[in-house]
Nucleic acid binder design. Sequence first.
DNA 1: ACCAATATACCACCGTCCCC
DNA 2: GGGGACGGTGGTATATTGGT
Length: 738
Amino acid sequence: MVLWPILTYYTLNTYRQLVDSIRALSTYSVLYRYLNNGVIPGDSKADEIFFNHVSESWNWTKTMYQRLTTAYMDYNKFNVKVCQPDAVLISGKRFSRTYIQEFYTNMTARFDGNIDKLKHYFLKLWSVKHIADTLLNSGANSNFCESRAAPKDSLFLLFTEKQLSLQMPQTVPEVTLDTDVVTQIVSDMGVCVMWMIYFSATGPYRFPDMVILKYAGNNRNLFIDPETRCLEIITSYSKTRREEYLCKTLDKQTSDYLFYYIFVARAVLKHSMGENYDGMNKDLFQDTNTVAEQYLLRNYLSRSVGNGESEEDWDPVRYSKIVLNSFVFVDCVSHSLMNYSKFAAFMKLYPASISGTSRLSFREMRHGMIKLVREYVKVEGESFEVMNMKERLAGHSAATGQSVYANDVETGTGSDASLEEKYASLINSAWQNWLGLGYGKEREEGGSAVARNACVKKYFSTNGSIKDLFVAGKKLYGKEFRFREGQFDVAVEIYLSGTQIIPIQALPGFGKTALFQIPLVALSYGEQKTVSFVFVPYVCLLSNMKLRLSSCGINCGILKDLFVNGPAVEEKNLFCDVYVGTFNDLGSENFVRLVNNWYNIYQDCILGMIVIDEFHNLETEQSYRGQSFRLIPEINFNLAWKVVVMTGTAGEKGMVKPMKFIGYDKEMCTSMVSNKNRILYFDLVNQIPLKNIVKKFQAFERSTVAETEVEKLVDRFMEYDTKSKVIIVCKEKVTVEK
DNA sequence: ACCAATATACCACCGTCCCC
DNA sequence: GGGGACGGTGGTATATTGGT
C-alpha cells in the first residue's frame, strides 16, 4: 500500500483526521451539487453515488476509513495481558500483586516516618495502632450506629469529648513550632493515605472522587462500620455526577491510618495553623471553571459554610476553619484541596524497588487494576451481576467496561439494589484478601509465590563444542577458513566459557564483527531459542551491520521494528536470532523494559548476547547525546547470557568509565591469571594508530557555511601537526544519531 | 507550575434486526 | 408495524499526560 510511509510521519490520529476531512469534503461537495441542482446541470446523482449504486471510490474511502479507525483503536487500546499467577502485563510493564503490596508498604512506612518527624514538635503522639485501639476499636458497637440517611454532623460526634481529648497530642514546651515544616509533613501524610485508599478501595478511584472525601459537614461521605470498625466511603459517579451511590469499605489497616490522619494529623495541622488561619483558598480546586468543579463547590462546599450565600459564610477565618474541619484531604501548603500533581508525584517514586521505567502511570494502573480484579478476584458463584458490579466499582458502567476495557461482560439489567450492595462488599473484601491488606491476614497465594517483580535470570549453557565454532567459521568464510590470532580465544570465551562480560579492543579492519558473528552462528545450531542484540552508534552503520549479519544465514531484524505495535512484544514475534539497533535504541524505554522483564514475560526464549560496538562512544559522546543514553544504566545487563563490548580506539583505560556506566565496576586485566574479581579484557591491538581523538558535533544552517568552517578547522589542525589525519563526517543530526 | 495536547467516558442518535 | 435490543458513529465534557 502506497500510503504506508505517510503513517510513519504522522501519528495515526493525525492521519485519521486527514481521512476524516477527505470523507467530509467529498460528501459535502457532492451534496452541495445535489442541493443546488440546476446550478450545475445534470449533477443530481448523490443518491446513486452514496446509496443505490455505491460508487467504487466512495466504497474505497469508506473501507479505508474503517480500517484506519480499527487500526487507530487497536493502537491506542491498552494492551493488557494476563500473566499467571497474579499479574498482568500492561504496555510492557508488569503489574502484579507484589507491585501493589510493595507500594502500599512503602506508603505505611513513609507515613510512620512522618509521625516520627512530628515527634520533634509534639508529645503524646501515639502510634496508629494505639489510636485505633483506644478510639476506633473500643466501646460498644451501638456507639457507632448512626442513620446513614441523616448522619451526625461529624464523624467525631461518635466519640465523647473526654475520649478524644485524652488522645490529643501536646506541643513540646521548649521547641518553637515551625509551621511550614509541620504543614509539609501533614500534607505528605495525606498523600500516603490517599494512595492507601486508592489501593484498598477496590476498583480504581479517579482522583477527583477521592479528593472530595469529607468526615464532617454536609455531604459527609465517610462512615464507620459498627461491626468491623472499618471505614466506609460513599462514592458516586465522578464523570456524570449521576447520583448512583456506592459503598466502598476499606481494610482495617487503611481504616486505622485514615482515622489517624483525620484525628491526629489534622489536630496537629489545625494547631499549627492557629485559631486565626484565614488562608484557605476560595478556589479549593485551584480551577473552578469546569462544570464538575462548580458542581463540587456547590454541593460539597457551599452548604458547609452556612448556605454559602451570605457574606458571613465567606468570612476567611470561618471559611478556612470549616474547610479544615470537614474535608479529609486539605493541603495547607497550597491552601486548597490536595492537588493532583502532589498525588501523582508518588507514582514516579514507588514501588521503591521497581526501576523508574517499569513503574506504571495512573492510567496504566487503572487499566491494570481493572484487569486484576476481573481476572484474579473471585467471588463465590460469580455471575454476570458480580462481573458488572466489578465494573461499577471501577467507576464506569458495564457497557463502558466492555468497550473501553475489552471486557466480555454482558450489559447489566438493573438488578436488585440490595443485591448490588452485597456484591460490592463481596468483591471489596475479596480484593483486600487477595492483596493481603489489613492485619494478620494470611496473604492468599494464588498459584506460586514466584511472581516477584524482580526478574530471575535463567542460566544457559550452549552444550556445544569447539567444533561448532569451526563449522560456523567455514559457513561464514568458506572452506579455507582459519581463525586469526586472538579470534579463536574470543570465540571460545564467548561461546563456551562462563564469563558474562567480555570487553574487547580490536582495530578497524581486524574483523570485529566476526568475533561475535561466529559464536552467533554456532548458537543458532542449538536447540534452545536465543535472541541477541547488536548495537552500533549511528543509524548510518545500521544497515551495514544487518547486511553483514544476514549474509551467513542468521535471521537478523531491526530492533525498532519489534516495537511497531507498541512496547509489549509477544514471544511468538521474536522470530529473529539477532536484532540490530543504534545507541538511541539501546537507551530507549522500550528496550530497557524488554530486557528487564525478559524472564517475567518469555518462557522459552533465552536472552542471548548483547553486543555493543564502538563502546567507548557511550563515554565520548556523553556531552551531546547523554540525554538519549540516560536510561542505559537502568538496563539489567546481568540477565543476558553474554555482554560483549568492543572498541577500536579506547584502550583499557578508556573502557573503565563506560564499563562502570553500564554497571560493571570490577577491575579489568589482560593477563590470563585466574582472578574472580577481575574482568578479563581482550586486547587484540599491537599498535595504536590514532591518538588524541577529538570529536565535535556542530550544526550549520547551510552547507556552504559548513564547508568553510571545516576548512578552517582542518587548516588549524595541519598547522599544529602536518602528519595529522582528519576524518570529517557531514550529515544531518538525525541521520547520524537515530 | 502551568498549559496545551491527547485520551477517556459516556451520551444520544440512527439504522437494523428480531419478536410479538 | 411497533418496540426494544444492539452495534456503529460522532459529539462533548472530563481526566490525565507531557512539554516548557
